[in-house]
Amino acid sequence: MPAPAPIDPRGPRFNQAVLSVALLTGFLVDWRPVVPLFALVLLAGAALGPKYGPFLVFYAKVIRPRLAPPAEMEDPRPPRFAAAVGVVFLTAGALAFAAGHAGLGWALALMVAALAGLSAATGICVGCEIYLVLARRRPVAG
């Protein structure tokens, strides 16, 4: 299977910044719908590709044309895997809210917010690192 086309790494980082700010703001004002809402946002980008993630599209159409070309491109698979992990956590958080466990719901959402913020601010993408560890154990086509 051929490797997917490389992407501008700033797109996923912008997506992660929006995700982190939205979840932290939602937590601050106790607006729980932000959790399932962003589970869907992440799911769109992770499952269908960057063309379907609303904030990835916003970055590509509005922000990227105003920036210099990226110094390096990156493989889209690690950030996509990281987004899929985020979907799992946010879905679990939404289910926890539905079951009446608000504390657990926010704990899961804040874990995603913290890791997304870390990746956006520093480039340390924990989900991507997990992907790389898995790839080393069972090399993927590339």
Binding site: L24, F27, L28, V29, L110, A113, A114, L118, A121
Partner: peptide, 19 residues
């Protein structure tokens, strides 16, 4: 709201420290 604000600040501080 104050307690949540403290948690958010702690998270932001942890992100900055990790960076």
């Amino acid at each position: 709201f104050m307690a949540r604000g403290v948690i958010v600040i702690v998270i932001l501080f942890a992100i900055a420290l990790a960076g």
